[in-house]
Amino acid sequence: MIPAAFEYYRPKDMAGVLSILEEQGDDARVMAGGHSLIPMMKLRMADVPHLIDLQDVEGMSGIDLGAETIRIGAMVTQHDIIEHEPLASVAPILREAALQIADPQVRYMGTVGGNVANGDPGNDMPGLMQCLDAAFTVVGPDGQRDIPARNFYEAAYMTAREDEEVLTTVTIPMPIGGYAYEKQKRKIGDYATAAAAVQIVNDGGTCASASIAMTNLSDTPIYSEAAGAALVGTSVDDAAMSAAVAAMLGDIDPTEDNRGPIAFKKHVAGVILRRAIERAWSRA
């Protein structure tokens, strides 16, 4: 498998990245860990005449825990997330989800920025970030802007990021309450047949807030506001969970593929969401 030829760049700072992007336009693309992009280039489904490797760009690999927010640099890897104890203690859902992505080798290379910027509906972090109401900071020729994860995904591989913009940071409001990332896959290392991210707050036995997002059940991740709302004010009993599942099923739009027919995917989505809610509630 030999990809098409390309010019390779390894700039040391963001100014260097942006100037190549500006000069080469559509022919240029950034690469983080390469574990989504390189397979596509090998299959010649992606042709990147000018490849900009971000590995040496300064200041993109930090994890900063503030009082109210968590800031994760785009080049932080899934392995870094798993290994970072302070992060796992304030936002355990990040580690729980990262451990369910791919396999150890892929997790050493695959980055948070690449996972959320890629736009593949199979990626796990976009739904996770929607659940957590994260914002993505992008920089481009016209400066910097923040895009909420919940408004970022337009269609498969289509996002609100412009081609000449680079994602630098993911900012997450400090999560509160119980959590769960539940994923059904055909085998270890596989993309989700269905996955659910849940954060839920228990106020004396009553659900005070709930955030729910689903992965690989539409051409984008699905933040289901209605599913969360179905739990608020309840004791998260069986009826409330059924209502949440029904609301979620109204928001997703799976297609048939090698992971199964539509009816099966909807069934699995319901099972997975129910499990995720139960586990998150038990931890809330």
Binding site: M1, G34, I38, D53, D103, Q105, G189
Partner: peptide, 25 residues
């Protein structure tokens, strides 16, 4: 295709599938 791990090497302390890295990297 990045799935089997037969090509695994250690690079700067990480286990990496050598079929999924360009020499330039």
């Amino acid at each position: 295709t990045s799935h089997c791990g037969a090509c695994t090497v250690t690079i700067d302390g990480k286990s990496v599938k050598a079929c999924t890295m360009f020499v330039a990297q």
